[in-house]
Every structure is written in structure tokens, then in C-alpha cells.
């Protein structure tokens, strides 16, 4: 008798949750299963089971190059994002002139479609763009510096697009810091650089870490930026898409196998992220 209303409450809760769950299963979980199933069929067929698609990937030196490139881009852009975000956050915390505008600027790359960012970057760093217009006389070069469609260029563009995650979390952690702690360290005789190295940085480390895992994950799954600015450099997401776009008939099974590898890696990163996020601060 007593659990009847609570059972009714549970039923109502389940009913309310059902649209969200239906959307999740219909538009994410089931498609992932379809992708997985397709990756286990021979190419061009919808019957028969095989592991050949995966075997090809691991035998193929192209695919290991793709994975290597994806990891290289994600890791290097994450490290550079941290190097950019920490001084940026430290400077922005002091509320210098124009800090509101600068704060908004931090969010621009993740709010604006990556496609437009990529296109604008191509124009800026191109052989007739402002970068070369200012650098060529400065360095006394007659030939423009090639940035677009190179590895270095991709790293720059990745940092441009994905540093926002690191910068935002670092800044918000830093602003949550009690100034009294730093004051205490200063009163105890620590120099500003000591305060920074032994007090501030360790305290904001959780924020830096969780932000950089977000940056890393986003960079690992990057699509629009390398699609437009990568040229022949194709990280994982672009390689998957090219299997469909370039080949006729489209290589669905090969693309699905790559997608399955990618999703598995991404779930592992997500697990790490949850770990980092949950770790008690201090």
C-alpha cells in the first residue's frame, strides 16, 4: 500500500524521461550500433561477417599515419593551448582595460562555426594574406611563407579553434580562487613568482587539466578545420568522411571501422575526463 504512490511517481518520472531516452537511443545509440554492424560486414555487402575491415586498418600504414597525425595535432594543440591560456587567464584576472571585450574574444572560436573560422584563417595566413604582407618585408623574404595546408599551419589553426575550452575553465577556476591565500603567501615572504609557482598554479591545476582534456577531445574529433585547411593532411574525422565522399561506390564498411575505432578512443578519453573532473581539488 505504502509504496503505491512512489511507484506511480517513478512511472511518471520514467514517462517524462522517455522522450530524451528515445532521442538518445534513436539518434545516437542505434546509429552507433548500425555503424558497428556495418564495420563487420564485407565492403559493399550487407550480409556476412568479417573482421577484414579492421585487419586492413591495422595492416595499412596509411591508417597508422592518420592516427599518428590525429594524436600529434590534438596533443600539440592542447599543450600550446595551455601555454596560451595560463598567462591569458592571469592577465585577464586583473581586469585590464578592455577585459570584457577580451573575454568575449575567448569564446569566439567555439561559438562561430569552425567552417568560417577555417576560411578566415586561410585568408589571413595565405600567401597574399596579412600575415605574409607583414612578415615578408620584416624578414626580408621575397617568397611568401607557406602556412596553409602544412602541419605547422594546422597546429596554429587547431590552437585558434580549440584553446577556448582550456582558457575558459582556467579563467573560471582562477577567479574562484580566494585572494586571501595569495596574500597569506606574500605575507609569509614569498616573491610574486614563488606565489605563482607554488600557490596559484597548483591550485588552478584541476581547472587547467579538465579544460585541456576538453580541448584535447574536441581537437581529436576535429572536422571542419582540417576539412577546409588540411589539404592532403587528413586526421581521423576527415579520413572517415573522405571514404564516403571520394570513393564511388562509397566505402561504408571501411569508414564504419574507422568510426568505431574513433568512438572507442573518444569514450576512453571521456572516462579519463570524468576521472580528472571528479578528483578532489587540493
Amino acid at each position: 500500500m505504502s509504496d503505491a504512490p512512489s511507484r506511480r511517481q517513478n512511472l511518471i518520472t520514467l514517462l517524462l524521461l522517455s522522450p530524451g531516452l528515445a532521442g538518445f537511443f534513436g539518434l545516437f545509440f542505434y546509429p552507433m550500433l548500425v555503424t558497428l554492424e556495418r564495420s563487420l560486414h564485407p565492403e559493399g555487402q550487407t550480409q556476412g561477417w568479417t573482421l577484414e575491415n579492421y585487419a586492413v586498418l591495422f595492416r595499412d600504414s596509411d591508417f597508422s599515419r592518420v592516427i599518428l597525425l590525429t594524436f600529434f595535432l590534438a596533443i600539440s594543440s592542447t599543450l600550446l593551448s595551455i601555454a596560451l591560456s595560463v598567462p591569458l587567464a592571469l592577465l585577464l584576472r586583473r581586469k585590464p582595460a578592455g577585459h570584457r571585450l577580451l573575454r568575449m574574444t575567448v569564446l569566439v572560436p567555439i561559438t562561430v562555426p569552425g567552417l568560417i573560422g577555417a576560411f578566415g584563417l586561410l585568408l589571413f595566413w595565405g600567401s597574399r594574406g596579412w600575415f605574409n604582407l607583414s612578415m615578408m618585408p620584416l624578414l626580408g623574404r621575397t617568397e611568401p611563407i607557406q602556412v596553409n595546408y602544412t602541419l605547422v599551419g594546422l597546429v596554429i589553426f587547431y590552437v585558434w579553434h580549440y584553446f577556448s575550452y582550456t582558457a575558459t575553465t582556467t579563467l573560471s577556476t582562477l577567479e574562484g580562487l580566494d585572494p586571501a591565500i595569495e596574500e597569506a603567501a606574500t605575507v609569509a615572504g614569498a616573491t610574486p613568482s614563488q606565489v605563482l609557482r607554488h600557490v596559484v598554479i597548483p591550485l588552478i591545476m584541476p581547472g587547467i587539466l579538465s579544460g585541456s582534456v576538453l580541448s584535447f577531445m574536441a581537437a581529436f574529433g576535429a572536422f571542419s578545420i582540417p576539412l577546409v585547411t588540411g589539404g592532403s593532411l587528413r586526421p581521423l574525422a576527415v579520413s572517415i568522411y573522405k571514404q564516403i565522399e571520394v570513393f564511388t561506390p562509397a566505402r561504408w564498411s571501411a569508414a564504419s571501422a574507422m568510426a568505431a575505432v574513433m568512438a572507442t578512443l573518444q569514450v576512453i578519453f571521456l572516462a579519463i575526463y570524468m576521472r580528472v573532473l571528479r578528483r578532489p581539488t587540493a
Binding site: 539518434l27 545516437f28 546509429p31 552507433m32 548500425v34 555503424t35 572536422f223 574525422a237 561504408w252 564504419s256
Partner: peptide, 19 residues
């Protein structure tokens, strides 16, 4: 429920397209 935002869309877009 947030998982689709954390996994790169291309991974499930393949399945969505086939369905």
C-alpha cells in the same frame, strides 16, 4: 544524454545516414 555532444558527430552520422 550528453554523450552525443562529446563523441565526434561523424562517428554516428555514418549510422544516421544509413538508417
Amino acid at each position: 544524454i550528453l554523450l552525443p555532444r562529446m563523441i565526434p558527430p561523424i562517428a554516428y552520422a555514418l549510422g544516421v545516414a544509413q538508417i
